[in-house]
Nucleic acid binder design. Structure first.
Lengths: 236, 236
DNA sequence: TTGGTCAAGTGGTCAGGCCACTTGTCGGAC
DNA sequence: GTCCGACAAGTGGCCTGACCACTTGACCAA
């Protein structure tokens, strides 16, 4: 059994998960009013500040709505009932698969519609990534920006949102385990080359080429992950 | 100037927005440690509990990481620098456009890979929507579940995440204005018919047909929004 | 050099309190 | 009888002050 990092879950997280589970399991319907904060805190055996932190977490996650002077209301109903269970956190390969589909189209749209300023922004992000990796910094931030800029150039802000959401899945535990040992300088060189191909296709106003270049980039990323995975397996 | 609903922003939101803006604007680099909670609270002129609520909000939004006994660290860098500005909230038509692309592929994958249980879950969500609208309830929850179930059947949990994210954009202000006047019973009948076509194609194991049916559904939804928009314009 | 100890700094949590807002009720004015 | 304004109870918003647990780095001894 591999040794795992112990991570003491903070109280507000435990409370939020508990209440969240109740909602997701359909214990409360949409619009239901929960007990007052004071009572809820007493029932859970925690202080009101801790409960409030949990409520804020659930509010941001979109499950609850807090109305001053009135109460706490459920805004989103559960959806666990009758569903086939699925892992909560998306695995690296699933994310890559989704990005291949999505960002391929983003690149195609960008090739069709990018303004001169947007093209400049893409190029700037790209050169930022080059200089970061030359300085042996972690180029991940610049990498993220490159992809976001392309999504922006597609002209559809919903696509930008989705690209960000998927990228930020990298913060999950599986990704972290995978990327902690990555050899950035070497990987970055390949990544930069693939990015360059995408930019060229977009600048050439070649939607099909841009799509293909983006998909190739995702395929190569997947391959790099696979190799990392294997190496990791040997070591551990 | 139209009269707007005054909505007193809660303190933690104001604080979170302020700190969030600092990060987004690139004032802090990734990994920077912020001032201790006590000092930060004093600087902002608020109490520590309020500041803590803001920090939790920013933590959930992925901008910060709080390490016990150590401090508060920036995890995501800003990206406003050099970008071409874009509306924050995605408009209804942008969301529909993104969903057309994405969920079309989800439906195609589902037609290829759905298990018997997953197909059952899709059908159950669909019949749930029918009964809801018959009882003149708002069928939106059941509608959401239908689309989520199809994404689940695609076998890629990252796609599920994305479908949920896009759907939940409906909670934004523009959508709300659009949907508040919608005639549910009438719209629901069309929606149910289009959903039925999607289910049929998936059950037939016809990826192309499923994709086309889903895209048709999105096109029709867009059309319904357009009409709603016009009606709304006339009234207002 | 290595390892342990200790103290300062920092986040985690709690208790109790006061204020502002919402909501429903009740009584008076018409 | 109807309407409307005042009042009070309930509820969330926010604050103060305190104590505990953990991290971190410095210092000391083997």
């Amino acid at each position: 059994m591999p040794i795992q990092a112990v991570e003491p879950r903070r109280l507000y997280r435990q409370i939020a998960d508990q209440i969240g589970a109740l909602i997701e399991n359909g214990e409360y319907e949409r619009g239901t009013r929960l007990a007052p904060e004071r009572d809820l805190a007493k029932q859970l055996g925690v202080s009101r500040p801790s409960l409030r932190e949990a409520l804020i977490a659930l509010e941001i996650e979109g499950l609850l709505e807090v109305r001053v002077g009135s109460g706490i209301y459920v805004t989103r109903p559960g959806e666990r009932l009758g569903g086939v269970e699925l892992a909560d956190a998306s695995g690296p390969f699933e994310v890559i698969g989704a990005r291949r589909l999505l960002e391929g189209e983003c690149a195609a749209f960008a090739a069709k519609a990018a303004s001169a300023a947007q093209l400049r922004a893409i190029r700037k992000a790209h050169s930022g990534m080059i200089s970061e990796s030359r300085r042996h910094h972690n180029p991940l931030d610049a990498d993220r920006m490159f992809h976001v800029r392309i999504a922006e150039a597609s002209g559809n802000s919903a696509l930008v949102l989705v690209v960000q959401t998927l990228w930020d899945q990298r913060m999950g535990p599986l990704f972290r385990a995978l990327e902690s040992k990555a050899e950035y300088p070497m990987m970055a060189a390949d990544t930069v080359r693939e990015h360059q191909a995408i930019i060229t296709a977009i600048a050439r106003r070649d939607p099909g080429g841009a799509r293909a270049a983006m998909r190739r980039h995702m395929d190569m990323t997947k391959k790099r992950y696979t190799e990392e995975w294997k190496v990791d397996g040997k070591h551990g």
